[in-house]
């Protein structure tokens, strides 16, 4: 039998997809499932960040605001009006996309550092807003108290389960859909325009590409998908607090994961989350109790080292190794 490189890669993809889907069947320990969910959650939000942060070539540092908007929209609708979080998820996504466009219109005129700072201010501004508003009319926002979603039994309509396994599959499916959309978009006209606009806006504009329009579309998509993750978060943790869903730490973490992995590549956010999150969990669990601060120190060190030695993120070197591996497989089969 003879396989081409492409076929081998396809087979590997299928194999790993099967494995990922079967993980909950083999691993009964829900603590590990929880870690997988954390990892996939960050893969997802970092991929959504990548629309703007990677392909459009700017540095947004306020994406937690969209998570907060998504989480609050669906939670308020669910807790106060009994509307299923699945509907709320969509509503939150749409509201978030609209806000994304509104905020994107002026911010995309800014460049580099100014864009990053504007998004920080936007993110913090949204958090402070949620912290200070108790009520809008009869709508209870909860202010700094946060909102608890009470557990009322396993239910698909209510997006609640004791077991972690449904959450595992939901975030997995969300991730796959988002990746598929990313791959599709990046191979479309829009993807090329977006990347061209990100790399050299003047040149792209002179070729007649409406850079601003594509950036706005990217922003809307990014905001929409990030907000959906917010709803997932709310139903998964069952408690939202401005400090936890809207924090600047979260905004930074999203960006770091994508950048360490390799921004502007589809695989980057995936690899970034795969490296940083389990590492973070392990160091926090095993070292955090003994020497508080060590785990974050190590994170800082990794950021510095990766940026010095692998400025394009770890995807570059890993992809090379992978391609070499595939090539070898091809030659083995042939001989």
């Amino acid at each position: 039998m003879k396989f081409s490189e492409k076929q081998i890669k396809l087979i590997l993809l299928m194999l790993s997809a099967i494995v990922v889907f079967l993980i909950p069947v083999f691993i009964k320990n829900q603590g590990y499932i929880q870690i997988f969910i954390v990892v996939m959650f960050f893969m997802y939000i970092a991929t959504a960040w990548n629309f703007v942060g990677g392909f459009a070539g700017v540095l947004p540092l306020g994406n937690a605001a969209f998570i907060a908007i998504g989480a609050y929209t669906s939670t308020i609708l669910f807790v106060q009006y009994g509307i299923s979080p699945w509907v709320g998820m969509l509503a939150g996504g749409i509201i978030s996309a609209i806000i994304g466009i509104i905020i994107g219109l002026p911010t995309f005129k800014l460049r580099g550092a100014y864009f990053a700072l504007a998004t920080i201010a936007f993110g913090e501004g949204i958090k402070v807003l949620f912290q200070n508003i108790d009520k809008i009319g009869s709508v209870n926002v909860g202010g700094a108290r946060g909102i608890l979603i009470s557990y009322s039994g396993d239910s698909f309509a209510n997006f609640q389960w004791v077991s972690r396994i449904p959450y595992y599959y939901i975030i997995l499916v969300m991730l796959i859909i988002l990746l598929a959309i990313t791959v599709f978009l990046m191979n479309s006209k829009m993807g090329y325009y977006l990347i061209a606009g990100g790399e050299d806006p003047e040149a792209a504009a002179s070729l007649g590409v409406n850079v601003a329009k594509y950036k706005l579309i990217a922003m809307a998509l990014s905001a929409f998908f990030t907000a959906i993750a917010g709803t997932f978060y709310a139903q998964w943790i069952l408690y939202i607090l401005p400090k936890s869903v809207g924090s600047i730490d979260l905004s930074f973490e999203i960006a770091f994961i994508a950048i360490i992995g390799g921004r502007g590549t589809i695989i980057g956010p995936i690899l970034g989350a795969l490296l940083l999150k389990p590492l973070g969990e392990l160091t926090r669990t095993y070292l955090g109790g003994a020497l508080p601060g060590l785990h974050l120190f190590i994170l800082g060190l990794i950021l510095v080292l990766v940026m010095i030695y692998q400025p394009r993120g770890i995807q570059e070197v890993l992809t090379k190794i992978f391609n070499r591996f595939v090539k070898k497989m091809v030659t083995i089969k042939r001989s």
Binding site: L12, V183, T319
Partner: peptide, 25 residues
């Protein structure tokens, strides 16, 4: 760049698989 992405994705899933094996142990 974009053509390779599917394959990079599959590679990451492989990594995922190994992590799982270890944690399973």
């Amino acid at each position: 760049m974009c053509k390779l992405n599917w394959f990079k994705f599959s590679f990451s899933l492989m990594l995922f698989f190994f992590v799982t094996l270890f944690s399973g142990a």
